[in-house]
Structures are given as structure tokens and as C-alpha cells.
């Protein structure tokens, strides 16, 4: 018996069924085409009155549309990988890394910006702000620092750290810059995780 309470679940079920029967989906790096697409292609192959030349054109057009649609779908659903499974381009010591930026900011940015880097050093500060916990490694002589913003799924790793902990953090280096507010250099990282 269908009661009012069941209706929303039925609606969701119908939406899911329509989605999976009309949109291609990916599983284990393989893209599966919905059955309706395959049936359409097969029926077109069987069209009796159409010349073989026209058939070929229509099939080519359908393949193009399918390829284009799949490409658009792929681009729209693209997500960043979990940082823990991304291979690092560089492995550096925090204080040496800061010095590299202080010596030549342009060259350092050219080399390291948007690269995946493992930084080894001591936690100088943990800055909590709302749901965020950023980790800082500070050069106490100059005040220059590296700041790491963690990937959502690794936020708890940052919250568990304490000042003075020796740590290895992997993340995407945004770039280094000079702060006119703090009058010192800083290097910011995004999508970080503890390097295990």
C-alpha cells in the first residue's frame, strides 16, 4: 500500500532510475553507456530504407554526440584526488624552503607553484578559524612562514597536531609572496594532508 510517507522515496527512486538509464556512468575507470543509447544505435543500424552512406553519416554523428557528451560529463564531474594518494614532485625541509623563496621569489615560484610538495618541519602554530585548522611553520628569525590549509577529509589530522610536533605535510603549493601587512614573506599551501 502506498502511503503519503512513501511518496518521497518513490520520487527519489524514479529520479535515480531515469538518471542511470540516460546518463553514462563511470566505474573502475570504465565508462558504461546506458542501455537506451545502445538500443538506439542498434535500431539505426537496422534501418532498411536508408542508404548505407546515410547510415554511416548518422552513426558518425551519433558517435560524435556520445563522445562529446561523455567528455562534457567527464569535465563537469572532475574532482581533485585525495592528496594522500598523489605523488609528490618535491620533498623539502621547511626552513630551507623558506630561504629559497626569500633569496629569489620569482625563481622559486616558477619552480614550485602548483606543484605537489612534501614539507618536513616543526609545527609553530595551529590557527583554528570556524571549521578550519591551518598549520604554520615559522622562521623565528625573519617571521617568514609556510601555511598549510588542509583538504576537507584530512582536516582532523591538522586538528590533532600540537605546537612543537615534527611533521611531514604534503600539499599543493599555491605560491610565495611578500606580505605588506606583516612585512614578511609567506608561502601558502592548499589541499594538504599529513604525509604518511
Amino acid at each position: 500500500m502506498i502511503t503519503d510517507a512513501v511518496v518521497p522515496f518513490l520520487k527519489i527512486n524514479i529520479i535515480i532510475r531515469i538518471y542511470f538509464h540516460t546518463v553514462p556512468f563511470q566505474c573502475s575507470n570504465t565508462v558504461y553507456l546506458p542501455r537506451i543509447w545502445i538500443l538506439t544505435l542498434k535500431s539505426m543500424m537496422r534501418m532498411p530504407k536508408m542508404s548505407s552512406r546515410n547510415k554511416k553519416w548518422i552513426i558518425a554523428l551519433v558517435i560524435l554526440l556520445v563522445a562529446g557528451g561523455t567528455m562534457i560529463w567527464y569535465l563537469f564531474t572532475l574532482k581533485y584526488e585525495d592528496m594522500s594518494s598523489v605523488k609528490a614532485d618535491y620533498n623539502v625541509q621547511a626552513m630551507d624552503f623558506i630561504k629559497t623563496f626569500q633569496q629569489d621569489m620569482t625563481a622559486a615560484n616558477k619552480k614550485y607553484a602548483e606543484k605537489i610538495i612534501v614539507v618536513n618541519g616543526m609545527v609553530s602554530a595551529i590557527e583554528m578559524a570556524d571549521t578550519t585548522a591551518n598549520i604554520k611553520m615559522i622562521d623565528t628569525t625573519s617571521g617568514a612562514y609556510i601555511i598549510f590549509a588542509f583538504q576537507q577529509q584530512h582536516l582532523n589530522e591538522a586538528k590533532q597536531l600540537k605546537e612543537g610536533d615534527q611533521v611531514s605535510i604534503k600539499g599543493s603549493c599555491s605560491n610565495g609572496a611578500f606580505s605588506h601587512i606583516l612585512e614578511t614573506e609567506y608561502i601558502s599551501f592548499k589541499r594538504c594532508a599529513i604525509n604518511k
Partner: peptide, 29 residues
């Protein structure tokens, strides 16, 4: 989430500095 900010509570001076590449989107493209 790594923006530098300052506030002078006496004069009201307020400043922000943000690294553009630190803006994170869910989609890499």
C-alpha cells in the same frame, strides 16, 4: 582559507591580502 588580515581597533584601518592561487574550487578544470 589562508588570507592575511589586519584590523587597527583604534583607527579602524582594515586590510586583507589573498593569494589568488589559494582559491580552491572542487573542480580542477
Amino acid at each position: 582559507k589562508t588570507v592575511i588580515a589586519s584590523l587597527d581597533t583604534k583607527t579602524g584601518k582594515l586590510a586583507f591580502e589573498a593569494t589568488v592561487k589559494s582559491f580552491t574550487f572542487s573542480n580542477p578544470k
